[in-house]
C-alpha cells in the first residue's frame, strides 16, 4: 500500500497579511508560513493508516521557502519518503497545482492520495477533486473517517448539521481529509534535526503543465472596517450590554 500526501505551506493567519504592490496577491516575502492545517490532518491519517497495517507514506511538496523543513518534519512524524517538485510556483492556484502534482504523483503509482480538504486562500477550487481528475481516480472530500481494507477505502463524508454519508471508494483514489481520527502529532525539534542529518529529499522536475484553466485574481484587499463591532474596553460595558439585551 502506497500513500502519497501532498503538503502545502500557507500564511499563518494569526499574522497580518501584507498585500503586494499592485494589490493582486499577498506579499509572500515577509509572510510567516506554516503547514496547511488540513494537510497536517491528511498526513496524520496517512501515518495512522500505516500504523494500522502496512503502508509506505510519501510526502510531496512544491519547492519553496522553508519546504525542506516542512518535509523533514513530515519524515520525523513517520513519513517514509519525501519528494520535492522543482520548477513550479508554490503559490499557484489549485488548478495549476493539481497539474504539477499529477505529473509527479502518477509515476509513483499510489494506492491512496490523502489531501487536506482545503487550504487557506483557495480561490479556484479544491485540490483533491482536481488532482483526482488528472489522475483518473475517484475522489471524495470532506472526509472525517477513513478505513482501508484491501482495495477499498470506506469513508465518512460530512454534510451539514452533523449528517454524514458512508461511501466505499475503489482504490486507487484521492480523499480530501477534513479531520484525522486524532489530533495531528507533534514532532520534537530534536527529532527533526536528527532526520535532517540522515535523510534525503528526492527531487523531481515539475514537467510540462500544458493548458491550465485559470480564473484570475485581479484584486485583493483587506475587509473594510467600520460598520463592524462597537469596541468595548472593559468588562462593565459587557455587563451593560447583557443587561440591555435582557439576558443578565
Amino acid at each position: 500500500m502506497k500513500i502519497v500526501v501532498p503538503l502545502k505551506q500557507v500564511p499563518d493567519l494569526v499574522e497580518d497579511l501584507e498585500l503586494n504592490d499592485d494589490g493582486t496577491g499577498l506579499d509572500y516575502e515577509y509572510l510567516k508560513m506554516k503547514l496547511n492545517e488540513w494537510d497536517d490532518h491528511a498526513l496524520e491519517e496517512a501515518i495512522l493508516t500505516k500504523e494500522a497495517g502496512d503502508a509506505e507514506v510519501i510526502a510531496v511538496a512544491l519547492d519553496g521557502e522553508d519546504v525542506d523543513k516542512m518535509l523533514f518534519t513530515a519524515l520525523a512524524k513517520g513519513a517514509d519518503k519525501a519528494v520535492k517538485i522543482t520548477g513550479a510556483n508554490p503559490y499557484a492556484g489549485n488548478h495549476e497545482m493539481a497539474r504539477v502534482l499529477a505529473n509527479a504523483i502518477s509515476g509513483m503509482s499510489p494506492d491512496l492520495v490523502l489531501v487536506g480538504v482545503q487550504s487557506a486562500g483557495d480561490s479556484d477550487g479544491w485540490l483533491a477533486p482536481l488532482l483526482a481528475a488528472h489522475l483518473g481516480m475517484p475522489s471524495v472530500s470532506v472526509v472525517t473517517g477513513l478505513q482501508v481494507s484491501g482495495n477499498t477505502a470506506t469513508v465518512h463524508k460530512e454534510y451539514s448539521g452533523g449528517i454524514m454519508a458512508e461511501f466505499d471508494v475503489d482504490l486507487p483514489g484521492v480523499i480530501g481529509i477534513q479531520a484525522a481520527r486524532q489530533t495531528p502529532r507533534y514532532a520534537p525539534v530534536s527529532k527533526v534535526r536528527q532526520i535532517q542529518q540522515s535523510a534525503t529529499i528526492e527531487e523531481v522536475a515539475a514537467g510540462d503543465l500544458g493548458d491550465v484553466v485559470t480564473s484570475t485574481v485581479e484584486e485583493m484587499k483587506h475587509p473594510e472596517k467600520g460598520g463592524g463591532a462597537k469596541m468595548l474596553s472593559d468588562v462593565e460595558e459587557i455587563v451593560e450590554v447583557l443587561k440591555e439585551k435582557g439576558v443578565a
Binding site: 477533486p129 482536481l130 481528475a133 472530500s141 451539514s160
Partner: peptide, 23 residues
C-alpha cells in the same frame, strides 16, 4: 459552497475545463 456543492463545482470544472471561483 457546501460539502456537496463544492464537489460538484470542482467536478464540473475538471470535466469541462471551465474556470471556477470558490468561497
Amino acid at each position: 459552497g457546501s460539502s456537496m456543492g463544492m464537489e460538484l463545482a470542482n467536478s464540473l470544472s475538471a470535466q469541462k475545463s471551465w474556470p471556477l471561483a470558490v468561497a
